[in-house]
């Protein structure tokens, strides 16, 4: 099958790839080494492949790669963090024990990232609603919900001069 040129911004940098017309964004990302994006159900049910496209969380198994032409795609590799540090969402997942096998964590992280941009002080109900498309078979969800709250608190703290710069994670 002939390949087609695809140009888009991946984690802040423009990339030029060759993809087949029926390739999903999930396949294209993984084939090009972005393996944080997990292949779960491939039917939009599990959310393990969630990425952020132009500020919106999307399940990359139901996006054709060629649909992101000219768009901006963010995966956990591109979550902004100070050098040597995790992004506050990732740190909150670690601190609250919201990671067990870890397979669902990148998807949860990206859904959380897009969600907290529009809901900086979420209620438990809003968090449950926002995460309803991401499945976790290990944690039982309570620690994940707690992690999202912890991340929201961390992200709402004012930036201290000298700590920001490249590390401004908002």
């Amino acid at each position: 099958m002939p390949k087609h040129a695809l140009s888009f911004v991946l984690n802040g940098e423009t990339v030029d790839w060759e993809v087949e017309t029926n390739a999903t964004l999930l396949q294209a990302l993984r084939e090009n080494g972005v393996t944080s994006v997990k292949r779960g159900c491939e039917e939009g049910e599990c959310g393990a492949c969630t990425v952020v496209i132009d500020e919106l969380a999307q399940k990359s198994c139901l996006v054709l790669a060629l649909e992101v032409e000219g768009k901006s795609v963010l995966t956990v590799e591109g979550l902004p963090a100070a050098p040597g540090k995790l992004h506050p969402i990732q740190q909150a997942f670690v601190d609250e024990g919201a990671v067990q096998c870890g397979f669902c964590t990148p998807g949860f992280s990206m859904t959380t990232y897009a969600f907290l941009k529009t809901h900086p002080n979420p209620t438990d109900e809003e968090i449950r609603h926002a995460l309803s498309g991401n499945l976790c078979r290990c944690t039982g969800y309570l620690s994940i919900i707690k992690a999202v709250k912890t991340a929201a608190e961390a992200l709402s703290k004012p930036i201290v001069a000298g700590e920001g710069g490249e590390g401004d994670v908002r």
Binding site: G44, G47, L56, A57, Q58, F115, S132, G133
Partner: peptide
């Protein structure tokens, strides 16, 4: 319908 993420698409 579906879930909060799929409804973006």
């Amino acid at each position: 319908h579906s879930d909060a993420v799929l409804r973006n698409k």
